[in-house]
Amino acid sequence: MTGADMPFNAETHLDAVAPTVGLAITDAQRPGVLEFLKVASRMAALVESAGLPDDAFDLAPVFRPGSVEAGDDR
């Protein structure tokens, strides 16, 4: 089973994660939040379905330590 096939239960996810990150989701907020979690789940499945090869992985954010002013590439 791939991530794209795995069922995502937005309600279960919200109830588990919201208190973990310190969010209290009100009744008024809940329907909208659930809807956006489902959208995000579909987007994540789409990304996973791309089947990116391991050797092509190169995280986009690159952290370059060192003084900006003294950097030799500036």
């Binding site: 919201a18 990150v21 659930l34 809807e35 979690l37 994540a44 990116l52 992985f57 986009a60 954010p61």
Partner: peptide
């Protein structure tokens, strides 16, 4: 609010 609850792997896969 929804975005604060996304699994880290979803974000990192997206960056890849």
């Amino acid at each position: 609010l929804a975005g604060a609850m996304l699994p880290a792997a979803w974000y990192l896969k997206a960056q890849q």
